[in-house]
Design a binder for these strands. Structure first.
Lengths: 355, 355
DNA sequence: CTTGTGCGTGTTACCGGTAACAGCTAGAAT
DNA sequence: ATTCTAGCTGTTACCGGTAACACGCACAAG
C-alpha cells in the first residue's frame, strides 16, 4: 500500500496533525519541523490520498467538463483553453462528451456533480428546459455554461452573440447578391435557435421573404449535415446560398454537394459558423463566422474558479459575450479560389513565410 | 448538504449498514427492506459520496486517459472509443492532454495514479525511458499503453505495427516511381522511431540509398510539420516524395508547400499516417496509412478493466497489434484529383448516395 | 512569583462510506 | 424441548485525511 501521513508521523515520532500541517504549509508550524517532515515525505515518496482529502475537506480539485462532441474540434479547442486555466490553479478535468444527447447529458451531470468542485457545461438541452439545472443550482451546484446557454438561469455563462452570428452570415450572402437563401438549422439548443433567429432577422431587414421550405432541420453533427443536404439535393428545390448552423454541419453538407457534383461556392454558396480548425484547408475553404474559442474556454474556467472560491456573488451571475466576426473564404463564392488572406503561419504566431 | 446513508437510516429506523447493503444490492438483505430503502433513497434523491466510497473501498471508478494532443482528431477518436467501453462498465474518464511534453506527462501520470483505478497512456517518452513507469508498475499501478508503446514494460498494450506503417507508405512511393524519397520524422516516441525504421527498411529492400539529408526532424504536431517543411523549402534540395510521420505533420507540411506554390501530389508526393478525420476532405486529399482507432481504444479499455478486475495475469501482459493498411488518395499523386473510391456515406454506415 | 501571551504540538472527533464479525430470530432437525 | 442453522440486521472499527480545541512551554509583563 501507499505511504500515509501516519507512516511519516511514526517515522518522526510526531503526530499525524503535525505532518498534515507541514505538507499543507500551515502557518502554525515550526519551520524546522516542516523541513524534517518534508524531507521524510520526499524520501518515502509520499502522495496524499485525494479521496481522503476530498472527504475531509469537501474539495476534490476536480472540475467536470461536459461538451456535446469531442470530435468537433471547436470543443476540443474550448476544452484545451479551459485546461490552460484550471491546471495552473491545481484542478484536473473530468471530461465527458454527450454526443449531442440530452439524456446522456443529464446522467453525466448528475454523476459528475458529486465528485467535482464544479462543472463547465455546454448544454444540449433546450434553453427553456431549465428545471433540472435550476434545481441543481438551488442545491448549491457550481455550474458555468459555455458556448450554449440557457434562459434565466442563475449561473455565469460565456457565449457569443449567436443572433449576430446568424445575421453576419446571412447578410454576407445577401450582400453577395443572393436572394434565395436557405438555412440548415440545428436542434433546440440555444445556439441553433439564436442563429436561426439571426437568419430570419437578416432576411427581414433586407426585405426578403422568409420561406419555410428553404429551412431544413439537420442537427449539429457533421453526419447530420451530410444526411440533410443529401436529402435536399435528392428532392430538389435547393436554394442558391445556404447558411449552416455550424461548421461541422456545413462540412457535412459540403461533402454531400461534392458527391452530387455540385460545385460549392460556385453553384451554391455556403457559410458555416465556429471557424473550426481545418476549415481553411478544405477542398473548398469554408466561409464562416468566428469568435475566440480560447477566450471562451479561459473565461469560463475563471468564472468557475471564482464560484468555487466564493469570490463570485451568486446574486447576479456574470454573462460574458464574445464578439463574432465574419471570416470570408471561398465556399461563399466571394473570392473563388484565391489564396488565404491570413497566412497559416499566423495561426502559430510565426513570422510570415519568406519562400 | 447532501443526503447521506445516515439520513436514510434515521428516516427508516435502521442502521447505516442496512442502507448501504440495500443500495449496493448486497445478497444478504431482505428484498422488502431493500425496496423500502430504495424508495426513500429515491424520494430524498440520495447520491452516494464517491470520495467516501473510494476511501473505504480503494476503488474510485475513475480511469485516467493521458494522450499527447486532444486537438489531434486521431486521439479524440481513440478517446471516444475508450469511453464507449468504460462508460457502460461504470467508469468515468479523467482526460489529460500532455501537448507532446514529456515532463507534463510524468506530472500528470503521477497526479492521476492516486485518484484513479488505472491509466490508459499514449506516452510521449522514449520507448527506452522505462524507469519511471517500471517503478510505478512495480508499485502496483495499473497501466495500459495505447498507440505508443514502450520496450520491455510489464503492461498490456495496443498499437499498430508501426514499422509496417513506414514500409507501406514508403514502398507505395517507390512503386509510384519515385527514387528521391524523404522523411519528415517525428520525435523519440515509439511510433516515430518505428515508422522511421520502416522507411529505412523499405529503401533498403528496394536497393535505394538512405540519404541523411533527405530526413528532417519535425515532431508530431501540425505546426511542427509546417515549420519543418517551410524550412526545407527555403533551403532547397527537397525530395520528390515525402513520407511524414503522421497526418498532422503531413497536413502542416502540405500547408507550407501550398504557401510556397508547390503543387502537392504533382510536384511533390506526400503520404501521412493515421488516417485522421478530414484527411479525405482537404484541398489535396491525403494519402495515408490507416488502422482502426476504434478497435485501438476499445481494446485498450477492455485490457485496463481486465487489470482492474484482476482478470488479467500480471505475469505475461497482452500485446495487441492492429494491422495497418494503405489508403490511397491524391496527395501521393497516384490518382490526381479523381473522386474518392469510398463514399463519404460509408463513414456513417449509410447506403450510397442516389443523387 | 504569578499571570498572560503566543507559538507549536497533540488529542479527539468527524467526513461518509464499507468490511468483518457479532447477534438475533424463526423455523428445521434431532 | 433443545440445538442447529440460515437469513437478516446491527456494532465496531477503519479507510486517510482535516478542523477545532486543548495543552504545554518559554518568555515578557506586571
Amino acid at each position: 500500500m501507499a505511504i500515509t501521513l501516519a507512516d511519516i508521523a511514526r517515522e518522526l515520532g510526531v503526530s499525524k496533525m503535525t505532518v498534515s500541517r507541514a505538507i499543507n504549509n500551515h502557518p502554525l508550524i515550526n519551520s524546522q519541523t516542516r523541513e524534517r517532515v518534508l524531507e521524510v515525505a520526499r524520501r518515502l515518496n509520499y502522495q496524499p490520498n485525494q479521496h481522503a482529502r476530498a472527504l475531509a475537506t469537501n474539495r476534490s480539485y476536480l472540475i467536470g467538463v461536459v461538451v456535446p462532441d469531442l470530435m468537433n474540434l471547436y470543443f476540443a479547442e474550448v476544452t484545451r483553453a479551459i485546461e490552460s486555466v484550471t491546471r495552473p490553479a491545481g484542478f484536473q478535468l473530468l471530461i465527458c462528451s454527450t454526443e449531442e444527447d440530452a439524456t446522456r447529458e443529464l446522467d453525466q451531470v448528475e454523476a459528475l456533480l458529486h465528485r467535482t468542485d464544479g462543472l463547465i457545461i455546454s448544454s444540449v438541452l433546450k434553453p427553456t428546459d431549465t428545471s433540472a439545472y435550476r434545481k441543481l443550482i438551488k442545491d448549491g451546484a457550481r455550474i458555468v455554461l459555455v458556448d450554449r446557454t440557457m434562459k434565466d438561469l442563475r449561473s455565469p455563462s460565456v457565449a457569443t452573440d449567436n443572433v449576430r452570428v446568424g445575421k453576419l452570415a446571412t447578410e454576407h450572402l445577401i450582400n453577395l447578391g443572393h436572394r434565395r437563401i436557405g438555412h440548415l438549422c440545428g436542434d433546440a439548443s440555444s445556439v441553433s435557435v439564436e442563429r436561426f433567429e439571426g437568419y430570419k432577422q437578416a432576411l427581414a431587414k433586407r426585405k426578403l421573404r422568409y420561406v419555410q421550405s428553404q429551412v431544413r432541420r439537420c442537427g449539429l453533427l457533421e453526419s447530420e449535415g451530410y444526411t440533410a443536404m443529401r436529402g435536399w439535393l435528392a428532392e430538389g428545390n435547393v436554394p442558391d446560398a445556404i447558411f449552416a448552423v455550424n461548421d461541422p454541419a456545413a462540412i457535412g453538407a459540403m461533402q454531400a454537394m461534392e458527391e452530387a457534383g455540385v460545385r460549392v461556392g460556385d453553384e451554391i454558396a455556403l457559410v458555416g459558423a465556429g471557424n473550426i480548425h481545418y476549415g481553411d484547408m478544405l477542398r473548398t475553404p469554408l466561409t464562416t463566422v468566428s469568435w475566440s474559442r480560447n477566450e471562451m474556454g479561459q473565461q469560463a474556467a475563471r468564472l468557475l474558479i471564482g464560484l468555487i472560491d466564493n469570490e463570485l456573488t451568486r446574486s447576479k451571475p456574470q454573462t460574458i459575450v464574445l464578439p463574432p466576426e465574419l471570416v470570408i473564404r471561398n465556399s461563399c463564392g466571394a473570392k473563388p479560389f484565391v489564396a488565404e488572406d491570413v497566412s497559416y503561419a499566423a495561426r502559430f504566431g510565426m513570422p510570415a513565410a519568406t519562400v
